[in-house]
Design a protein around this nucleic acid. Structure first.
Lengths: 338, 338
DNA sequence: ATATTGGATGTAATCGGTTACATAGCGAGG
DNA sequence: CCTCGCTATGTAACCGATTACATCCAATAT
């Protein structure tokens, strides 16, 4: 392995000078710089970052925790983080935590072991206290999901407003019996989306019926199962709002399995606008989040914290928008007055 | 930050002894071991891996290059790699190369910079020569895709045999006009799957018609566009084999867009068995690869190479299987004799 | 009692960089 | 001609671990 020593010897200078060239110090004569650069090229030298990072007490890598790369929602978010990190000379370490606290804790050890300088959570399952403990020692940002109580930076959308918009769209189409397919999870988005659903109903004089609210576990199959019970009701809903596209796909399947059709018999709205939501048929009406910008902003906040050493808590809310496709249609069974 | 020095001081021993405790050296009295361990716990000490790795000249992390985490095929593959790496005390560094040679080269610098000890490619776009250059200095394994010429280890399935099986299934159902939707890419899987398609036809006395072979770029939209031309032919195929599930979804959309139905009018077979292939309706008949084991095996080979310092070239072919779902059906327009 | 041995522990070199401080060399000003 | 000051470069300490080698001590052999 070629080291800075070899380069120094080859160039006939000291290691300090080589280091100065590497770090663009102005205290180097143009000629010696040329000589050193020639030697670097000649030997095909790359500095050993373990040595550099040890000395500088930094690793130039950021931990990014996400539930699983199989969740298609996060790919654009990650892209935003990647691009931003790269712009500032950082690498990211992408880790699947599979929504397991133990996994998250394991990966967080990398901070203490100096393999990473900071961490972005996308959907933490750790408690507010645990997160705040980390944040005492290291920069932390939450992206997408966040823990309301914790005094930690986060960037996210207004899930309640977004869900409100989605349900209002159904109401505007004439629907009055609107089912909800969600989860009883720790994630704030699930709670806020449910709140948005209820608020939209109430604001439009529609009663919230508990039997129309069903909980699954984010999966396709759970969406399917849960929706089946909705569809099989004697007085079934004419529209269903699901808090994720994958669950919405389960809902659509439940509907077609029962011999009904989307949107003719039941309209369906999802959430997230994953790529597949436009590939299925009928294409899914859903809520689109600014995923790239979510990741980008989170990374910028983190790197800012790292640079300044500050721990200022920033809360950023980005806009979302409803994408209307083919899975929603006007209620046509009756001329219900709006 | 608490260092090994602090622990040594707190325990009243030398750093060497602490290090020996950390590394389970037998040359430590049980009592002093206890004292040291108490100090470690007391101070909540974690060794700085930058120091350790520098000294040991290793990083205990493996680079994993994949086109993009948005490709749902790779999530299980990565899981197999992750679990295996973890078992042997390694971390993985997951990198999206977006099928860009420049990106791949950038990430490979991490090897020379000592941030990673070896690399697994899933779908390299670099040339055989470039890959072999890397392999001179570092352990390299190809997983899923590979470059036929290169003398590098790889683990993969027999794509030709798998495609053959898929097409034979269509033939067995009575289909004779079978379309092919593929890509003209650098990836061997695309070539082998096309070969398998052709071989299956020829082996069953069916002529290969160039007009039934269409190329796109792996995307949903390209699958859709390309399939549209197949479906609109006056003498349209009664079945279509696509080399990826995402393309197959495009194909299905093209068919339904034309007012036809799957599988009644046209049967469709995909490839990869991504999660979504069972969520859409009709559920897609497709080829399932042992994704977890692909990743696991690749990682095992890599770590083996790393441990032994050998560069033995291993070529592992795992089994695949056809998963028959609802997108394929018997040809019923005529009683074609088999 | 002394020499020998072997195991536990300590001392210090080392990995490959960065950087504070030391030094050398040169030009300008008196 | 000497001094001062500035700049380019070198020397060596340092980051936090590991580990070869040295040392110390107690137990055993003679």
């Amino acid at each position: 392995m070629v080291t800075i020593q070899d380069v120094a010897k080859a160039a006939g200078v000291s290691v300090a000078t080589v280091s100065r060239v590497l770090n663009n110090s102005p205290r180097v004569t143009p000629e010696t710089r040329m000589i050193v650069e020639a030697a670097i090229k000649e030997l095909n030298y790359q500095p050993n970052l373990l040595g550099r990072n040890l000395r500088r007490a930094e690793s130039k890598t950021i931990l990014v925790l996400l539930p699983s790369i199989s969740n298609p929602f996060y790919s654009r978010v990650v892209r935003g983080m990647e691009d931003t990190a790269q712009k500032y000379g950082y690498n990211i370490m992408l880790c699947n935590d599979y929504s397991e606290a133990e996994m998250e804790k394991n990966y967080l050890e990398l901070l203490k072991k100096r393999i990473a300088d900071g961490v972005i959570f996308t959907a933490p399952v750790l408690s507010a206290g645990e997160l705040e403990d980390i944040a005492k020692d290291y920069p932390v940002v939450q992206c997408c999901e966040y823990i309301p109580g914790a005094s930690l930076s986060h960037v996210s959308i207004d899930n309640e407003a977004a869900a409100y918009k989605a349900v209002k769209h159904l109401i505007d189409l004439g629907h009055r019996r609107i089912g909800f397919v969600g989860t009883q999870s720790v994630f704030i988005s699930a709670i806020q989306r449910e709140n948005g659903y209820k608020k939209a109903l109430l604001d439009h004089g529609i009663e919230v019926s508990p039997e129309l609210i069903q909980y699954g576990n984010y999966g396709f199959l759970s969406g399917l199962n849960v929706a089946r019970s909705l569809v099989k009701m004697k007085n079934r809903p004419t529209a269903i709002f699901a808090i994720s596209d994958v669950m919405a796909m389960g809902v659509m399947r439940a509907i077609t399995d029962c011999g009904l059709s989307v949107p003719k018999d039941v309209s369906v709205v999802g959430f997230d606008n994953i790529d597949f939501s436009s590939m299925i048929s009928p294409a899914l009406t859903t809520v689109s989040q600014p995923r790239y910008r979510l990741g980008q902003t989170a990374m910028e906040i983190l790197l800012e914290q790292l640079k300044n050493g500050t721990r200022e808590v920033k809360e950023v809310i980005l806009d979302s928008k409803l994408v209307i496709r083919d899975s929603t249609g006007a209620l046509k069974s009756a001329y219900t007055p709006v």
